[in-house]
Amino acid sequence: MIRYRLGAGATSVRWATSPVHEVVSLARLLTEPRRHPVFHPWLRRRRQRLAGLDLSALTDFMADGAYRPDFLDPTPPTSDPTFDEGMAALLAAPVEQVHAELVDATARLEPTARRRLLDDPARTRADAAAAVRRLWRAAVEPEWPSMRQALRAELLDRAVQVNREGLRAVLPRLHPSVTSDGDTVTVESAVDVETDCPDGLILVPSLFITDRVQCTTSDHWSPAICYPATGRYLWSAPATPRSLDRLLGATRARILAALTTPLQTTVVAHLVSVTNPTASEHLTVLRDAGLIDSTRTGRTVTHELTAAGRAVLDAAPTHR
Rank of each mutant, 00 (worst) to 15 (best):
R232I: 07
N276V: 12
L207Y: 04
Q97G: 07
T284D: 15
S189G: 09
F83D: 06
A93W: 07
A126L: 10
V274F: 07
T230L: 13
G182C: 06
T106Q: 05
L43S: 05
C226P: 00
A153D: 08
T306Q: 05
V301K: 00
T278L: 06
T278K: 06
P145R: 02
A250R: 13
D70S: 15
D64Q: 15
W136S: 04
P198N: 07
P69G: 05
S222H: 15
L55P: 01
T297M: 10
V162F: 12
L271N: 01
A190Y: 12
D293G: 10
R133P: 02
T261S: 10
L248C: 09
R148I: 03
E85D: 14
Y4P: 01
L55I: 06
D54C: 07
D183Q: 12
R152C: 11
F39G: 01
S25G: 11
H270T: 07
R3E: 13
L91Q: 11
L313V: 00
L313S: 00
L91P: 03
L26N: 01
P205Y: 09
R44F: 11
R46H: 15
G86H: 05
Y67H: 14
A10E: 12
P172Q: 08
G298L: 04
W42I: 02
W15A: 08
V312L: 08
V312N: 00
P277W: 12
P238S: 04
T266I: 14
T302A: 08
T230N: 14
A289S: 13
R3C: 08
P228R: 05
P142F: 06
T106L: 01
Y227W: 07
T295H: 14
R35L: 09
Q264V: 13
L244N: 01
T230K: 15
V204I: 06
T184E: 02
R28H: 15
A239E: 14
L256C: 04
R299K: 13
L53K: 07
A169Y: 07
W144F: 14
L72R: 02
V187C: 01
V103D: 04
T265H: 12
R212G: 00
L167E: 10
E165W: 12
V20P: 11
L167F: 12
P317H: 04
T261M: 06
A279Y: 02
G290H: 06
A229L: 03
R137T: 14
V274T: 09
R28Q: 14
A250Q: 12
S243E: 13
S280V: 11
A169R: 15
D181Q: 14
V24E: 02
W15G: 04
W144P: 02
D314L: 09
P121H: 03
A138Y: 05
E281T: 13
T210H: 12
R133L: 09
T11W: 12
L58R: 04
L201F: 03
